[in-house]
């Protein structure tokens, strides 16, 4: 029988395969996992796992120190230090000089995504899960008018393309700092890579 959920180990592998092998330049892939509150019956899409690859835009902004204002950068770096401390238990796991480097907009957007969720079909990920129809939004101007807080936030942080594809138990979201027009190949790849019989055995 098919397992109820993808295992955590295979999730990371699936997300990595999706974007490392793609022709297009995707900055990140996220799996939004569905769950149902047994008391209220509400359906929630929450963070399942994510893979951040980065982009040429990240490198350019880091070199030019233009990722965000000085105050915003200090805030991001402080949060990064706190998160590092959280996962390392306050000791060990040195960040070296990495924390002092610019935290780019798309890195920040990915980090903030870990705190987000979509209740009962809200937001583009929620709509995609409920309708079963994928969403492909190319261009910052289109993200800005998509009537979705997450799409607007993505555009604010420099994402130019956001794609959501419904899969078993959730939604796969891909994001890029490039404007990427529809690709049947990547849509098909999401379906194959996120089928239960891939990798679980």
């Amino acid at each position: 029988p098919a397992p109820a959920y993808f295992s955590q180990e295979t999730l990371q592998h699936r997300l990595q395969i999706l974007i490392e092998g793609a022709k297009e330049s995707w900055a990140y892939a996220i799996f939004w996992q569905s769950s149902v509150d047994v008391c209220s019956g509400a359906t929630l899409l929450g963070w399942g796992d994510g893979y951040y690859k980065g982009s040429e835009d990240d490198k350019r902004k880091r070199k030019a120190n233009t990722a965000a204002s000085a105050a915003e950068q200090e805030h991001r770096k402080r949060v990064l230090r706190e998160l590092n401390s959280l996962i390392s238990g306050g000791a060990g796991f040195s960040m070296d000089d990495a924390v002092e480097e610019e935290v780019t907009d798309s890195e920040w957007f990915f980090l903030v995504s870990m705190t987000q969720s979509f209740l009962n079909g809200t937001g583009i990920p929620g709509q995609v899960f409920f309708s079963g129809a994928p969403s492909w939004i190319a261009g910052g101007d289109r993200l800005a008018v998509a009537h979705c807080d997450r799409a607007l936030q993505a555009q604010t942080f420099g994402i130019q393309t956001m794609v959501c594809v419904p899969v078993a138990n959730g939604v796969v979201e891909l994001g890029s700092t490039d404007t990427i027009f529809h690709s049947a190949e990547i849509m098909s790849k999401v379906k194959v890579v996120f089928s239960f019989n891939s990798f679980e055995n």
Binding site: Q12, G54, I87, F110, M114
Partner: peptide
């Protein structure tokens, strides 16, 4: 990010490790 619960720690740890690699390769 302050509200990242326990279940997301693995994703976060991977992100930070990969970030170190990306930054050192920049």
């Amino acid at each position: 990010p302050r509200a990242v619960p326990q279940a997301r720690k693995a994703s976060l740890a991977r992100f930070l490790e990969k970030r170190k690699e990306r930054v050192s390769n920049t």
